[in-house]
Design a protein around this nucleic acid. Sequence first.
DNA 1: ACGGTCAAGCTGTCAT
DNA 2: ATGACAGCTTGACCGT
Length: 259
Amino acid sequence: MDACKVNMCSTGLSLALNYYGKSTDSSVGNRPRPSSGLELEISSSAAAAIEPSLTLGLPGDGRKDWSVGTQSSPTHSVMSSFPGGHPSKINGENDEAEKIWPRISDEEEDGTARKKLRLTKGQSALLEDKFREHGTLNPKQKQDLAQQLNLRPRQVEVWFQNRRARSKLKKTEVELEFLRKCCERLTEENVRLQKELQELKSQKSSAPRYTQLHEAAPAFAMCPSCNKVTGASDGSGSGLLAAASKRHFSNPFAHCAAR
DNA sequence: ACGGTCAAGCTGTCAT
DNA sequence: ATGACAGCTTGACCGT
């Protein structure tokens, strides 16, 4: 049902009405919703001169809606974005625009022509600016912007919907990257701690006498290398295992290693 | 040829 | 019931 409504908005009928100065966009009110995170937006240049856009169309493109007087209808397609008439008649800027998006010929319109609308840089820039101001538009803003851009309100609406989607996708990608790095760091930390644990275990197993002594008399330890009894006077004031389990554990038998 | 981008279509959900 | 929106999809276009 909604699809029907949407389609009505973009039908040839709606375009024809729009062409005669009436918008069929019937939005009543924008429900305030949290907009997507805008902090990730890629900044764009300030609004440039608004250039005319082209809405090109052809029949029989396989999309069901295009075949019943939709935006792509040869009769309305070119007009759809230009309430004032054909794009080539607007502001005399069509020359440059046509270099980028050449206007299709009548033959092409009748036959197998292209149809995709490409917004001009100026249109995109202004839309970006508005999007940075607010991620959603109320009906008045939408109408004004559409008029400013020589687009239908529906097109402005669609642009904002797609823009929000892109914004959200970008944000998700950034978050994913952040989590990926967190995961990497935790994995490395885990490996390091596993190694540390392994070292401690091997130390413990290779020094049974030390361990026994430690357990019996934690204040003293016997060096497994020189068999000298080492007092717990290294300043740690704690057992050797506890000392070893410190993050950067000190070696109480460093005096042997130094030999 | 192929993948990326983007305007636009479709559908479901939510708020009014 | 209706409109706005999100999410997904489609198809044209473009750069490689």
